[in-house]
Design a binder for these strands. Structure first.
Lengths: 202, 202
DNA sequence: GTCTATACAAAGATAGAC
DNA sequence: GTCTATCTTTGTATAGAC
């Protein structure tokens, strides 16, 4: 077995790329875009810092790739719910959204991205991706304007609860409990299990 | 007239403090917590960088003061709508929320704060403040669990649209238009006028 | 109350070896 | 494909003058 430091065991570039993207999603989600260091991403992925930069060019490009992947994963999760009875479609999509919590940092990374509209390079891509999601729910899922509004608002509130790491207050504050229940319906249990706790790094 | 550089015209410490907090709100809202430099805050406030640090101790304390002020301003805006007919109260509160866009960066700063739940110092205070708002709408305004859920989700979606700076797409994309209309009701006009554009620094 | 000068640490990116 | 070493810039915070 090769020594742990120095050349981390070789890996096909596609797999390595995916594992760095997943690690970066966790770190960006917990620390924000600017608050993330390429070194922390590297450590989380088990590679060296210069290697991360070398593979993605710049931290900014890495972030853009992470955000794009996050949106594609989200759309895939939604698309998987298109088959099946239309009456419960939106509810199933909500469940799929909660399932995305299994991808550490994904929802929080999206919310972070959605705050960077003022950045000349990041802003335009984030707007495009958000509009992609909007077009998907309106045109492919067939939601009307009111449904899309409610669905997206629900999603953003879930992101907030997750980003705040408010789950620890669920059984300490009845108002918090009510909000979680209204927001997550049957998915509360999954959300509380999957979401990061206040004291976890991510 | 005293020269523009060197001792900026003296100002009572309370006023200076408030003007730095307002400037910092704009910068934090546009650049996130980690992405903000104390120097940029200083420039926006028209004072020197060391002076900002000296007045607030650390960048972190400055941020905590900014976030606290943002929540207090929000609660004040809501409280001002408590008098008047109960039937339209929630709607009026929504209007008051849009009015907060006049305070540059306030809504975006809040959303940024709500993503920092994993920070050992910032997280606990942000949870407390969010729960304060929740308690206010439930107990002082008297919203039921469903109303609070819808109201807060609506708010978070507004924050997202503002942070993304999606207003420029309002009359370019019918789906975006519908979303703005559903989300902001009669307040669309105000929102589009008050929110920062994609190319503005804040 | 406010500034200039500066010390010191952190982090992105590059060069080049294996 | 992956690492070590390092250059360079930036940014927080301190010291001390006015």
């Amino acid at each position: 077995m090769s020594s742990m430091s120095s050349p981390t065991s070789r890996m096909p570039s596609g797999e390595r790329r995916e594992s760095i993207l997943a690690a970066a999603t966790a770190v960006f989600g917990a620390r924000s875009y600017a608050g993330t260091t390429t070194d922390e991403v590297a450590k989380a992925a088990g590679v060296s810092q210069p290697y991360v930069v070398r593979m993605f060019g710049t931290k900014q490009k890495l972030f853009l790739d992470v955000v794009d992947r996050a949106v594609q994963l989200t759309l895939s999760a939604f698309r998987a719910q298109l088959e099946g009875p239309a009456e419960t479609r939106i509810e199933r999509m909500g469940g799929a959204y909660v399932g995305l919590l299994a991808e550490r940092g994904l929802l929080q990374t999206l919310n972070n991205a959605f705050l960077l509209g003022g950045d000349p390079e990041i802003g335009p891509q984030c707007r495009r991706l958000f509009v992609d999601v909007l077009h998907f729910v309106r045109n492919e899922v067939g939601m009307d304007s009111e449904q899309a509004f409610a669905f997206l608002g629900n999603g953003m509130l879930i992101n907030t609860l997750v980003g705040l790491r408010l789950g620890g207050d669920y059984d300490r504050d009845p108002d918090v409990k009510d909000l979680y229940d209204a927001c997550l319906g049957g998915g509360v249990g999954a959300a509380l299990t999957l979401a990061p706790r206040a004291d976890e790094p991510w």
